[in-house]
């Protein structure tokens, strides 16, 4: 039998490369934050050299900016955690056989949440719950559930049915198959959904300022209302940088959490 194994192993050397790390994507992952830092540096340089008015100086004080950034991140984080807690179990549930019939309905509801204009959602929740961060978070959750839910279901549906059968056939319980086979194999798609949701939430959290929820959106509204273009530009760039940073973190996590062997 040894001849058999040898004959087949000659074909292996080419297959071996199947697991190589994608160098292109690794390089872009390292380059990405460097570019973001460079843009941030340019922004700071520009603000330091600019001849700022008193109002601008007060609004753009480093302490103020840091507080707003923290508020913004807080909104994002809380909303995202709630999205994950709601959408992932829901996605798992809706791909289980007894609940499949509800898949269309729930997907429709989630679609509605995303299709509705974000400003409208935030104001709607504010009039219902009251002005403040709670309403903003509720609106953000509704807005961002869809990508996570959709990708969780897509990821689980994409798992080769024969693998599930193999698992069940060797005596794994349905639960064990979910934990040890389906979810690990769905991780790449699920994480992509989470990243999409995060980026959506970071951008949309800007609107929180309309209902007194704080965040970097304040800079933009202030800039528009008082016609301070430098404040407006700074706010916009900071929000964009924050969204891109979150996107980068998401990509890094995806890279690390991707199961080996795929």
């Amino acid at each position: 039998m040894t001849t058999t194994a040898n004959a087949e192993s000659t074909a292996e050397t080419t297959n071996r490369s199947g697991l190589r790390v994608d160098r292109g994507s690794l390089r872009s992952l390292i380059l990405y934050p460097v570019i973001l830092l460079a843009i941030l540096g340019l922004l700071i340089l520009w603000l330091l050299t600019a001849d700022l008015t008193n109002t601008e100086r007060v609004t753009l004080a480093p302490g103020e900016l840091w507080t707003m950034t923290k508020q913004h991140l807080w909104l994002t984080l809380v909303a995202t955690v709630i999205v994950l807690v709601v959408a992932i179990p829901l996605g798992v549930l809706l791909t289980r056989k007894p609940f499949r019939p509800f898949k269309g309905f729930i997907s429709g509801v989630a679609n509605f949440g995303q299709a509705a204009p974000a400003v409208g959602l935030i104001v709607l929740f504010a009039t219902w719950i009251g002005y403040g961060p709670t309403a903003a978070i509720a609106a953000l959750v509704v807005y961002a559930v869809l990508p996570v839910l959709a990708n969780t279901m897509a990821g689980l549906d994409a798992v080769d049915k024969s693998l599930i059968e193999a698992g069940r056939g060797m005596g794994m319980s349905a639960w064990a198959v979910l934990w040890r086979i389906e979810l690990p194999l769905a991780v790449p798609l699920m994480l992509a959904g989470v990243r999409t949701a995060l980026v959506l939430v970071v951008g949309t959290a800007t609107l929180g300022t309309f209902i007194n929820a704080g965040g970097l959106g304040l800079l933009i509204t202030t800039g528009v209302n008082l016609d301070l273009s430098r404040v407006l530009i700074t706010g916009s760039i900071l929000v964009a940088l924050l969204a891109l940073t979150v996107d980068w973190v998401g990509r890094v996590v995806e890279h690390i959490a991707r199961p080996r062997g795929l």
């Binding site: 024969s162 193999a166 056939g169 060797m170 005596g171 794994m172 080996r260």
Partner: peptide, 29 residues
């Protein structure tokens, strides 16, 4: 499940779990 653990089951193309090594696949049961 207990019944199936007492029987070997082989499907077309092996049905190996792609995210586990050969040893982990064999050692599953």
């Amino acid at each position: 499940d207990e019944l199936r653990r007492r029987m070997g089951y082989v499907i077309q193309a092996g049905g190996l779990f792609p995210h586990m090594t050969v040893a982990a696949n064999i050692g599953m049961v």
